[in-house]
């Protein structure tokens, strides 16, 4: 009970499937009341980590505690305080949205009319009232995701875990999920979410752990992470391909990074550490009569993050330690 300050605390957490160490010695400290993001590519071990913390599978090594309770020895206490929204909508497709939520509300101890009221309130809050009496198999991806998250909230959990909550969603649905997460944290819930998108982690999370091959390779606030990988990337298309070398030279001087000439003969991109300097640099280029037809400032992709942190792309070859460990 003395360690309630950490919503999640893991020490040397390990899970192996055969020779594959899906989670390979993870130490996490998630402060209560924050949004914590686990960022990594497919197969990095994010889901396995979450399933161990949610008491669904047993760790092969190390410990995990949720709000001070050990996930193996005190599984029932852990389950009472957390809710998990898995990677795939974990709903009964044959039932209506309302029935799904009533079912979960009853399991969480709401009785009779109270369960129905709770379900109705949540459908309302997640903008699903109109679809309440439709079977879930008729729902769109975004609606399922919202219903799924609503299902985790029938009793206000102290810890909500969301496994890739926006993978496969269109931008509008993604925005809705993000708003839901912010609202929840506003209500005092700790949220752990896994994602493949730096942008998502950056938008939502107070702290980010970057995982690869079952290990945490970087951890910190999003500001600290960006200091490591750069704030983003500037992509420019010039009006005339002949101007490209000169534009590249000017950008390199003004923004202090090496431009990459892309296969497209009019396109180039470069890493940007100080987004505010971009406008000035572009203005200077147009002043010299060089035509820029298009530019975009975007966050680094997961690949760029991994390139910066590990020197290899996210889907690069597994390090040789995997052979050594068997």
């Amino acid at each position: 009970m003395s360690r309630e300050t950490w919503a999640i605390e893991t020490r040397g957490l390990v899970k192996a499937f055969g020779a594959d160490r899906a989670v390979d010695g993870v130490d996490l400290e998630v402060p209560a009341g924050c949004v914590y993001s686990v960022l990594g590519p497919n197969g990095a071990g994010k889901t396995t980590m979450i399933r161990m913390i949610a008491t669904l599978i047993r760790p092969d090594g190390g410990t995990a505690r949720v709000l001070g309770h050990d996930v193996t020895a005190e599984a029932a206490r852990v389950r009472a305080r957390l809710a998990l929204t898995g990677q795939f909508a974990s709903l009964d497709e044959d039932l209506t949205g309302l029935e799904n939520l009533i079912l979960l509300a009853r399991l969480r101890g709401h009785r009779g009319k109270a369960a129905r009221r709770r379900a109705t309130d949540l459908l309302e809050a997640f903008d699903l009232s109109a679809a309440a009496r439709r079977e879930v198999k008729t729902y769109s991806g975004g609606m399922r995701r919202r219903l799924d998250i609503a299902g985790s909230l029938v009793a206000r959990p102290d810890l909500l875990m969301l496994d890739e909550p926006t993978t496969g969603l269109d931008p509008r649905s993604r925005g809705q999920v993000w708003e839901s997460v912010r609202a929840l944290v506003g209500a005092g819930t700790t949220v752990l979410l896994t994602t493949q998108y730096l942008e998502e982690a950056d938008q939502l999370a107070d702290r980010i752990a970057v995982v690869n091959h079952g290990r945490v390779i970087a951890e910190g606030t999003s500001g600290r992470l960006k200091a490591l990988v750069g704030a983003g990337a500037l992509r420019v298309r010039v009006a005339d391909g002949a101007d490209r070398p000169e534009v590249a030279r000017l950008l390199a001087v003004m923004l202090g990074a090496a431009p990459v000439l892309e296969p497209d003969p009019v396109a180039l991109s470069l890493r940007v550490d100080e987004p505010a300097a971009v406008a000035g640099a572009l203005a200077a280029i147009t002043e010299r009569g060089l035509g820029v037809s298009e530019y975009a400032l975007a966050q680094p992709s997961l690949d760029e993050v991994f390139l910066a942190l590990t020197g290899e792309p996210a889907d690069g070859p597994a390090p040789s330690r995997e052979e050594a460990s068997t």
Binding site: T55, L84, G86, S90, L91
Partner: peptide, 9 residues
């Protein structure tokens, strides 16, 4: 479909 994980947690 994953409903099982939901129930088990």
């Amino acid at each position: 479909r994953g409903a099982f994980d939901r129930f088990r947690s």
